[in-house]
Nucleic acid binder design. Structure first.
Lengths: 339, 339
DNA sequence: CTGAAAGCGCTTACAG
DNA sequence: CTGAAAGCGCTTACAG
């Protein structure tokens, strides 16, 4: 509903200046530009194609794009599930590459006809999410969460699922339980580590630093992990591998070394989609429903688009989804081979 | 460059009529509407956001959307590799759901600010591709190919890769070689079947209809396949599984039945991305580079966008990419177990 | 750096 | 069903 003229009226300036501020024209006072950006977002200004409103929702990478990954594919699928019936379209965007020199994020989104954005973020790029939130542009962060009072996020909490997983291993009789983490620290992996610590302590089992193993989040990282475990003494009899590809790579390498799974080592993996069913034995895993995260993310944007004015600046949407723990064939009591 | 006014001039009608034809206004003669659509596409009319040209390229599903699949993810990744440096954006679209009642495809694309489209198609929806081509909209088909003189496609030819695969099995000493195909017929699977027939005949091996097995393209389809193979007599000692998920499911089920791979059965799979490395033993496979298909598809659109006038209607782009055959651990001579 | 006014490209009553 | 003219929303010389 908000037009350039309307925003001009609100701010007591001319439509020409609003237009210039929106389009990053160099001859606009920085202070005016910022007021216009905030007013645009507060009143949910909508870009138009001809005389028609655009209907694009971005799936935007703030850092390195990882379009091909199963997690991202599932997120997009979830978004798309909800979007098309509302007439919205999914646009995939690499923010860093798309950005023009002196542009801010709202201007970038406007230029591309984007009404709201799902932000795919990692620890290194949380700053971009904060900036977008500060500009007031409707956005929600997925795949990472952090505590900024302006940032909306959908977060899949892996703490409780991870507790179940470690408890399962303890119940099976394991006392030497390792955990593998991505070399890059992030909030989700921290949850998984905390769960591991918590359950081991709770059962008065030793919490050894050397059982915290870091490996890159790739198939090869899984191979490295198994070779490092093989060299340990005492050797862990079970490991919680907090990344999907690493778990798959570990299974492959363990078989290569003629280990029986779960006889020689029990493995609990982590799954974003359905990779756990692709390996043999099928992975016991903590599972995150990335598709549901994508659905929730779009639903949140839809709600954000329907509020404007002061509420737009003060309403924060945060939703935590549960992970679930699923027992398959890769775990058993220590030394007990599969059937 | 072509504006509504310019198209009006070309056709000797008013800009008002052109606008109405483009926007599917009911009060336009059907014949006029079609001439406008053709002229728009011939002169590469570009929709605008405000006064700026839109830069969207669609990844459009003509049939059932399969956003989450590894093949589609790799295609999108390939497109995106090439697009962002040209300033284009990737929009994901489910054509059937996006379409308004009396609209044609060009009108749909225009409404969404789309300049050109990569069409993801299966046998059931080739008609849609033909229609889009007939309207003259810049588009290229991927994942399927068929011989319509107006349709552009990028096609990964699996015939020669499949011949190599079957020859490899024959060279290893296999004489009972089965092939598994998707329950739904399509051009790519037909290539793979023809290769199987050709090489067996060439080596004077029996080409048995009962060794042509159809299974749904899922993990469970792979399990069904192995159970059916187990029940056969004489039992094939090798199978060429022409779908990625089926091959992975088959490995899993074979291990479940305590078969040694490749000792009890050699498996050649088919891979779109890097699923072949996720299983143990790693799959010997015919590999299609879906990412390269995506890259080529965008490059083709880029070329299409740069030609207009009569050429736009008569130039057809068709490109065939090669598959390559890669030997990994899932094949060996009959009866010879892995190390 | 800003505004009043002209301009752009497209759309839409209005008249036929 | 079509066109001439007015209108819409935004942008852009022009003047200060």
């Amino acid at each position: 509903m908000a037009s350039v003229r309307e925003i001009a009226r609100q701010l007591g300036i001319s439509a020409a200046t609003v237009s210039r501020a929106m389009n990053n024209h160099p001859l606009v006072a920085e202070e005016v530009r910022q007021r216009v950006i905030l007013a645009m977002n507060r009143s949910r200004y909508v870009p138009t194609v001809g005389r028609r409103e655009t209907m694009n929702i971005a799936f935007a990478y703030t850092g390195e794009a990882s379009i091909g990954s199963p997690f991202d594919a599932a997120l997009m699928q979830g978004m798309s599930d909800r979007m098309e019936q509302c007439g919205f379209d999914l646009m995939v965007l690499d923010l860093r590459r798309a950005m023009l020199p002196r542009e801010n994020y709202t201007q970038l989104f406007l230029r591309k006809g984007i009404r709201a954005a799902v932000l795919r973020t990692t620890a290194a790029t949380t700053g971009i999410c904060r900036e977008i939130a500060a500009e007031g542009f409707p956005a929600v962060v997925v795949g990472y969460h952090f505590d900024d009072p302006e940032v909306n996020y959908i977060y899949s909490n892996s703490y409780s699922g991870s507790c179940e997983a470690i408890t399962h291993l303890v119940d099976l009789g394991h006392t030497h339980i390792a955990i593998s983490l991505h070399v890059v620290e992030d909030s989700d992996h921290t949850d998984r580590l905390n769960a591991w610590r918590h359950v081991l302590k709770q059962h008065k089992l030793p919490v050894l630093d050397k059982f915290i193993i870091r490996a890159p989040a790739t198939l090869d990282g899984g191979a490295q992990l198994i070779r490092r475990i093989a060299a340990m003494s005492p050797r862990p009899t079970a490991v919680y591998i907090t990344d999907p590809l690493v778990a798959v790579g570990a299974i492959s390498e363990a078989r290569q070394m003629n280990w029986n799974i779960p006889g020689d080592i029990s493995i609990v993996g982590f799954d974003d989609s359905d990779i756990r069913f692709m390996v043999y034995p099928k992975l016991t895993a903590v599972c995150q429903d990335a598709r549901a995260v994508g659905q929730e993310a779009f639903d949140t944007l839809n709600r954000l688009l329907n509020i404007s004015g002061e509420d737009a600046k003060t309403t924060v949407f945060r939703r935590t989804l549960a992970t679930h723990f699923e027992v398959n064939g890769s775990t058993a009591s220590p030394g007990k081979a599969s059937l």
